[in-house]
């Protein structure tokens, strides 16, 4: 199959790679450039485990073709913290509030929460639950994920 050259910025680094037109963005991330922090949980775009930010907006990277990311910037959970010691407030909040157990949904859940708080810095519980509807978790029952997002909003100064 023909390969197409693409240039994608991932977590601040530019990657020039040739991919099949059908290659999913998530497989490009995981298998072509080794950014394995983003994971795949389903094949129907229901679970959201693969959520990343594409030019700052959350997308499910299983539902975007790698070629569609050509010339764009992807931020994954691996690029969220500023260095080892400056965690993103959402990461801090998830640890503080026990918002994760097995951690498999976490990369997507965290990125979805980052996007949610960008859109709405002071969400109600209902808005958090609706906002994260596209990200499934089987471990936490979401109770502590909701708490985590509320606490992250507080850390980010949105929560009055």
């Amino acid at each position: 199959m023909t390969h197409i050259p693409i240039s994608v910025t991932v977590d601040g680094t530019v990657y020039d790679v040739e991919v099949e037109p059908r290659r999913l963005l998530v497989h490009f991330l995981r298998e072509d450039i080794g950014r394995v922090g983003t994971v795949v949980g389903c094949d129907t775009s229901n679970c959201g485990a693969c959520t990343v930010l594409l030019d700052g907006k959350s997308v499910k990277s299983c539902s975007v073709l790698a070629v569609q990311a050509d010339g764009h910037a992807v931020l994954t959970v691996q690029g969220l913290a500023e260095g080892e010691h400056k965690w993103h407030p959402v990461q801090e909040a998830f640890k503080e509030c026990h918002g994760l157990q097995c951690g498999y949904c976490t990369p997507g859940m965290v990125m979805a929460a980052v996007d949610l708080l960008q859109e709405n810095p002071n969400p109600s519980e209902e808005e958090i639950r609706e906002g994260l509807e596209g990200n499934l978790c089987r471990c936490t029952g979401y109770h502590n994920i909701v708490k985590s997002v509320e606490y992250a909003a507080e850390l980010m100064g949105g929560k009055s």
């Binding site: 394995v36 983003t38 994971v39 959970v77 691996q78 965690w87 990461q91 998830f94 640890k95 951690g103």
Partner: peptide
């Protein structure tokens, strides 16, 4: 106590079986 496991998991520094190449 907050979990030791979380720092890795929250930064995508994970070792799922599918990561192994």
């Amino acid at each position: 106590l907050r979990r030791k496991e979380d720092a890795r998991l929250l930064h995508g520094q994970t070792n799922w079986t599918d990561n192994i190449q």
